[in-house]
């Protein structure tokens, strides 16, 4: 498998707090990589370096490099907005805009310059189909995005991210606020999407990582303890701490 994200000697500080320590990793293209570990271990922080959402937090400092498709995304030439178009994100809480279902999806493409009505209709339909939501909402696209269920809202958020045609989709505990059935739907969706997109998901739920991902990374206290193919990590971890965590001894 080709790797699309390459992290070299990455250190990240929030002020004095050393949040990520010397991270080295490669993330394979068109597959699902899961980040697991206890709260505060740095998994979300690393995820948020991929689309530079950490930039918004004052006092964040970064050393080392994060390369996406060969380009260091922290170099000066990189335009953050272009980067974020290529690296979509789905958040922990479903966060649709207080707009109609249609406008939620069309928002990104529209502001990126697409005004043709037909083209927008097409993008909305394709994105909603990709997010397995089309059949449920196609008859009331003009309704508020808040009128659908939490699970549907989260798929709407996935569709919204897909509408700007990213290569990579980041999911930051995207199912932790959802019920089991909605969670299952999102997991199935991720399985379908991985043929076209590189997916990196942070999850609190080890079983979820085991169910859906091809590669798993285990974090502890800002360090990457171990990363390998999911099956191997869960069946035959090389590090004692990994074994302790996945067997439920802490975390």
């Amino acid at each position: 498998m080709n790797s699309i994200i390459e992290i070299n000697d990455l250190d990240l500080f929030y002020g004095d707090f050393h949040a990520l320590k010397h991270v080295n990793m490669e993330i394979p293209e068109k597959a699902i990589t899961a980040f697991i570990g206890p709260s505060g271990c740095g998994k979300s922080t690393l995820l948020r370096t991929f689309n530079r959402m950490n930039d918004m937090i004052a006092g964040t400092r970064i050393e080392g490099s994060v390369e996406i498709a060969g380009t260091d995304i922290y170099s000066d030439e990189v335009d953050v907005e272009t980067l974020r178009k290529r690296v979509g994100m789905v958040f922990q809480q479903p966060n649709p805009f207080p707009k109609s279902i249609y406008d939620n999806i069309a928002y990104g493409p529209r502001l990126h310059g697409i005004t043709d009505r037909k083209k927008l209709d097409e993008i909305v339909e394709t994105s909603l189909r990709s997010a397995a939501l089309w059949n449920e909402v196609k008859d009331h696209l003009k309704r508020s995005a808040f009128s659908i269920s939490g699970g549907q809202q989260q798929r709407l958020c996935i569709a919204r991210a897909l509408a700007v045609e990213p290569d990579i989709l980041l999911m930051d505990e995207a199912t932790s606020a959802l019920d089991p059935i909605s969670t299952l739907k999102i997991e199935e969706l991720a399985q379908e999407l991985k043929d076209r997109y590189t997916i990196v998901m942070v999850t609190h739920n080890m079983h979820q990582a085991a169910r859906v991902s091809q590669q798993t990374v285990f974090f502890l206290n800002g360090e990457v303890v171990e990363y390998s193919e999911t099956e191997r990590l869960f069946s035959n971890p090389t590090d004692q701490r990994t074994e302790d965590y996945i067997s439920g001894r802490f975390g």
Binding site: E81, G88, F91, Q93, N95, P98, Y107, G108, L111, H112
Partner: peptide
């Protein structure tokens, strides 16, 4: 809500566009 703002920024929208088309309407 911070989530709304982040959602817009994460779509690659500039700060200004985020302010005018998401934050001000809200």
């Amino acid at each position: 809500p911070r989530e709304q703002k982040e959602a817009s920024l994460a779509l690659g929208l500039s700060k200004w566009k985020t302010i005018t088309s998401v934050m001000l309407p809200i």
